[in-house]
């Protein structure tokens, strides 16, 4: 397992940030979703051993959360949400310093700093003072600093916040590449569902400090059993009436019909009815939820 938490509770005064959270997450690219105040940042800080939890236990890479905090941080790279800088140094020194703080000797740290800066696309700007970097460059710089000691788990807390579309896409590409081509585990916290969907395979949905939903994104999106999206060439309404007469439940979607087949009926019925009506089927595919629908459903269920 990448990490396992058992009944973790963390409060800040009257605010309960995590409430009896138990979760086991496999290695891979994991998205962390949740509305504001859901406990995402507290969960990340718990994993990094930065906070003292009131109750519960847990492990990251089999290392105990309570007793092996520094060992966990050694194995993890973290890109914080806010703009953070070691001031007064050029980019390459910044990244090398991050490596030295993790225990790398200076020559190794410098060599590695050049490599990771090239990887994140800051090779040309490596000798510029970090204070002169734009928001997007700063974010890539902190990513480079998180990668310098080659962590087994990379935690990205809202990494695309405040970035322009091009910068955001580059950051997503980098994260995706690390997770899928370089076998680095990733915990990607974001409000932006498309970002999570693009980068991650697995998702955790938090709400009010509790786990609302967890699983492989593809599996969560395949919830609509025997539902199809159907598009026809001519008269969609007439075709919808025919489907209803055949016992199907039909809803109007955006330019598509959303059709639920009754028990015992197969998708052959679409072709049969279309042939009978002289209609052409232009679009037919099993209906899948978007991640947004999955997320909203989880929140609605929690609110209920």
């Amino acid at each position: 397992m990448l990490f396992e938490l058992h009944n973790i509770t963390k409060t800040y005064g009257k605010v309960t940030a995590l409430s009896g959270l138990s979760v086991a997450v496999p290695p891979g690219a994991v998205g962390l979703l949740g509305p504001n105040g859901a406990g995402k940042t507290t969960l990340i800080r718990t994993l990094l051993g930065l906070i003292t939890i009131e109750s519960g236990s847990g492990e990251v890479f089999g290392l105990d959360l309570h007793s092996r905090r520094l060992a966990i941080r050694q194995a993890v790279g973290f890109v914080p949400e806010d703009e953070c800088l070691f001031p007064g140094v050029p980019g390459v020194e910044f990244v090398a310093y991050a490596g030295e703080l993790c225990g790398m000797c200076r020559p190794d740290a410098l060599q590695r700093a050049h490599e990771v800066l090239n990887h994140v696309g800051l090779g040309e700007a490596r000798y510029r003072l970090v204070e002169s970097y734009s928001a997007g460059m700063t974010q890539r710089l902190t990513l480079a600093a998180a990668l310098v000691h080659d962590p087994r788990l990379l935690i990205l807390d809202e990494p695309t916040n405040g970035m322009d579309p091009a910068g955001r896409q580059e950051m997503l590409e980098l994260a995706r590449d690390l997770a899928h081509s370089k076998q680095m585990s990733l915990l990607f916290s974001s409000h932006l569902l498309p970002d999570i969907e693009y980068v991650c395979d697995h998702v955790l949905v938090l709400g009010r400090g509790r786990l609302l939903l967890q699983g492989q994104i593809q599996e969560l999106k395949d919830l609509h059993d025997r539902c199809y999206e159907v598009g026809v060439k001519h008269d969609a309404r007439a075709f919808a009436r025919r489907l209803s007469d055949a016992g199907c439940r039909v809803k109007d979607g955006d330019h598509r019909l959303l059709v639920s087949l009754p028990p015992g009926q197969s998708e052959e019925v679409f072709w049969t009815l279309a042939a009978a009506a002289g209609e052409q089927i232009r679009h037919l595919r099993p209906q899948r939820s978007t991640l947004e629908e999955v997320f909203l459903k989880a929140l609605e269920k929690d609110a209920a």
Partner: peptide
């Protein structure tokens, strides 16, 4: 004067404390 105040100004503490450093 720069030793800590500049780290506070540039919000560097999360970078320090998220690494294996007390």
């Amino acid at each position: 004067p720069n030793l800590i105040s500049r780290d506070l100004r540039f919000n560097a503490l999360p970078l320090y404390f998220s690494r294996p450093l007390t």
